[in-house]
Structure formats: C-alpha cells, structure tokens
Design a protein around this nucleic acid. Structure first.
Length: 423
RNA sequence: AGAGGGGUGUCCGAGUGGUUUAAGGAGCACGCUUGGAAAGCGUGUGUAGGUCUCAAGCUUACCGAGGGUUCGAAUCCCUUCCCCUCUACCA
C-alpha cells in the first residue's frame, strides 16, 4: 500500500508510476485521495478539540466530587453531557472518511522502479540475459505428460479420484525426485545464509492483507469453511507476515529466511492449451526465499537473490533466461520483478519457474514492518522469490534429459535421489 | 470439546469508576562518580495520528481486539481472539 504522505508530497511521480502500471484514471484517483485526506484531517481535528473540552470537564467534575461540591459537579455534568453527541458524530464521520480513503488506497498497485520497461503484456518484457543452450532433443522426444505415464512416476488420474484436476499424485521415483529437489533447494539456500522456517500453510485474513492477497484476490485462494482461513498460495505470505506489527532492531537486518511449503492456487478461469500436465497445478511445492532490508540495500539484495536462483538453474544445467517484467505484466505489490524461465525441450517453450521481486515499502506499510534509524521509525523493504517452484523444473528436467536409457538425473541431484536414471 | 483462571509498557509486575500524568522493580541510553569497571547517585526511555517551515511544545488515541454504559473506563457490560490449569479426546 502506498502511503498518503508520499502521495501528497509526490503526486506527479505517483500518477506517472500508476500510469506505467496501466491504472485507469490515475490522476483523478490521486486527486481524490488528497481531497479525502483533507476531509479526514479536518473531521479529526473537530472531533479531537471536542474531546479535549470534554476531557478537561470530566477531570474538573472528578475534583469537585471529591471536595464535596456536589451541586457544581452536577451542573458541569449536565453541561458536558451535551457534548457527547457532537463527539460521537465527529468521530464517526472522521472514521468513515478514513475508511473511504483507505478503501480507495488499497486498490492502488505499487509504483514501478524506474528501470521497469513500459509495456502491457508479457510480449513487452525485457530479456536481461540467456544462459546455456537449447538441449539437443531426440527426434521422438516426448512432452513430460507422456513421460510421467511412461515411467509411472506422476499420476493425474489418481489425483482426480482423490481430489480433482490439478492435484497429481507423485509415486516411486517421482516422489523421491520431489523430495530430492526440496532438500537440494533448501540446502543451497542455507549455504547462502538463509534461515529455515517451517510456517503454517493456513493463514488468517490479516496475513492475507499484509502481503497484498486481500482484499481482492480471495478468489485465487482456497478457504476453510468453518474458520475462514486461507490455504497459502505461496510461503511468501506466512514467512513475510512473521514480521507483521514488528519494529525490527536495525542490527538484525538484513533478515534472510527460506521455507518449503506446498502452495495452493484455485487458478479460477486460467485453464487452457498451455496448462497441460505440470505446467499449472492447484497444489505444488515451492521453496521460497524472503528478505527484509533497510531501503538502501534492497536493490543489491534483489540482484543477489536473482543470482542465487540462477545458480540453482545452472547447477541443474537448465537452459534459462531472465526477464525484467514490464509495467503491465508485473504483480500488484511489486516495484521490480525478475522472472526466470527455463526452456522446455519437448514443448518448445519457456516455462516460468521463479519470480523474484522487490516490494520496497508496499508490503511493509500494510504489515507495519518498521525499523529505527537514528531514532526515527521507517518502513522496511521486503523482497521474495521462488528458489524454486518444483513442477515446471520437473517438467523441464524430464523433457530435456530424456534419452534411450530413460531420464538422466543431473549429477548434483544424485546424492539426493539415490538413483541416476528414471527408467 | 467441557469447566475454571488469565492477557497491563522492552521485560517482570501493581492497579475493581475520578491527581493514573499507568505505581514499583529490572533492562536499556546518557551523565556524575572511578585509574578502569562494578556498585551507587541523577536524568531519560513506547506506537500512531493531528497541529507546526523544522524542532520544541501542545493535543488525540492506544492496558489482547472490537463494540457498549458513563460527565469520566486498564477497572463495569457484551462479542471475539489468544494463553494457562483440570477433564475429555487424540498423532
């Protein structure tokens, strides 16, 4: 969430940023917010000055009562009783004005970093770099949805029976490959100084608000019927919300956390030709890295996180590219996002396997996550990234490494899987 | 899940309607003291909003959260969340 003081002081920058993110009526909205804030302030002042009078009178009544001057006290009481209505009315008006302003404010996305390219769709994303080369595929190379059947390692039909579409069952070497990747990714993050967290995978409404899923995106999450808790779409939510309502000691920054969780996404209305097999699931496993920084170090951290993710892809020997997302393709809360895409040899297309973002103070403002610098409290910067999400990595590994002997496991994973081939 | 007891500042902890301007203690910071340290003494010590060119100052709210009663609420009432004890259940 953007802050009102920032918008007031930088209204033109705000408008330009919102336009880059393709917000309609940006300048009208910004002007409206400032008017609403003026109203809020003026009503608040009226309420507070009435309250002050009433507080002073209440104290006098107390003193009069104690010194036995009952009649004077009674007179004063009658006098201040009349104030009650005014106070209540003004307070309610001020509260309503504030709510109206916040309701509008939370609909605004974060402002993009200056390096974010203009553009509307994924076509406009900027390719920052490409690593490796196209895998040499045999003529009869099969897509992963055929390979998983051939080797009987991932079973969608069973998942359909147990739960429904998009909830596969991993079996035998398929299950062990999952476990190997999870451990590999966690170990690599820990080597880089991340601290491992195992968070709850159900979260409450406050947590959903803190990281920007709520309000507005509840349709993308599964909800429990009795308690109204949400199944997490990503470990970003619980791991970042660890720091909700926290003033972090400056000495503890930066914070670097990593966690593995299953992730649940309803993906309402997004099924189509490109989402076969493992390309899009309702439940999948992901290792997430989360960092909390002082503002001046957050962009350096973003680059480090990008390099960490790239290191994983290189160790798995996957041909990949890094994209800088354009204004129209970026997430709601992000100021700058890099997407990592791996080449899928049999599908002949890039698959997004990671998204690394700097949210600057956007989440921190919602979370009330602050630190103190020279006695003043300031909002922290939050960042996160997938390192990595499993299903598309599995898809690419299966497709790119298929051969006459079956599917070759990358050397670095063998100590984790305990086998060299799936056959 | 049932019964009972709780939730107060960075921490411990007092406080059952009116100098509470939240006692007292610990911690922390600064100062005095000291050869240096400890002890001792003194001072200070939250968050958010408003006012203000800035600072100071003034002011409002905050005692788990939300609402109510009252001239006045940490204190009384209602709702709700969380913790503890016992019972029940359970991996």
């Amino acid at each position: 969430m953007l802050t009102i003081p920032f918008i007031r002081a930088n209204s033109e920058i705000t408008i330009q940023g919102l336009k880059k993110k393709h917000v309609a009526n940006a300048s009208e909205i910004v002007n409206q917010l400032i008017v609403m804030d003026d109203q809020r302030k003026s009503l608040l002042q009226q309420a507070e000055s009435a309250l002050e009078i009433s507080n002073v009178a209440a104290k006098e009544i107390g003193t009069l009562m104690q010194s036995g001057q009952k009649e004077l006290a009674e007179a004063k009481r009658a006098e201040t009783a009349a104030l009650k209505g005014t106070i209540k009315e003004k307070e309610e008006a001020a509260k309503a004005a504030e709510k109206q302003m916040l309701d509008l404010l939370v609909t605004l996305p974060n402002l993009p970093h200056s390096s974010v390219p203009e553009g509307k769709t994924a076509e406009d994303n900027e390719v920052v770099l490409t690593w490796g080369s196209m895998p040499e595929m045999q003529a009869d190379a099969q897509p992963h949805w055929d390979l998983i059947k051939k080797y009987d390692i991932i079973d969608f039909d069973l998942g359909n029976k147990i739960t429904g579409a998009g909830f596969p069952v991993y079996k035998g070497k398929g299950a062990r490959l999952q476990r190997a990747l999870i451990n590999f990714f966690l170990d690599e993050a820990i080597k880089e100084g991340y601290y491992e967290i195992q968070p709850p995978i159900l979260i409450n409404e406050d947590s959903g608000f803190g990281t920007g899923q709520l309000p507005d995106k509840e349709g993308q999450m599964y909800v429990t019927k009795e308690e109204g808790l949400f199944l997490i779409p990503t470990a970003e939510v619980p791991i970042t919300n660890l720091y909700r309502d926290v003033i972090v000691n400056e000495k503890e920054l930066p914070i670097k956390n990593v966690g593995h969780t299953p992730c649940f996404r309803r993906e309402a209305g997004s099924w189509g030709a490109h989402v076969r097999g493992l390309n899009r699931l309702h439940q999948f496993d992901k290792i997430e890295i989360v960092q909390i920084h002082k503002p001046e170090t957050s962009y350096q951290a973003l680059e480090e996180m990008s390099l960490h993710v790239q290191g994983l892809l290189q160790k798995l020997n996957l041909h990949y590219r890094v994209l800088r997302l354009c204004g129209g393709d970026m997430g709601f809360a992000s100021a700058l996002t890099y997407d990592m895409e791996v080449w899928s040899g049999a599908q002949n297309r890039w698959l997004e396997v990671s998204s690394v973002s700097n949210f600057e103070t956007f989440q921190a403002n919602r979370l009330k996550l602050r630190t103190k610098v020279e006695g003043k409290s300031i909002l922290c910067h939050t960042l996160n990234g997938s390192a990595l999400a499993l299903p598309r990595i599995v898809a690419a590994l299966l497709e790119n490494n298929q051969g006459p002997d079956g599917i070759k496991i990358p050397d670095i994973l063998v100590p984790y899987t305990g086998f060299t081939h799936i056959n």
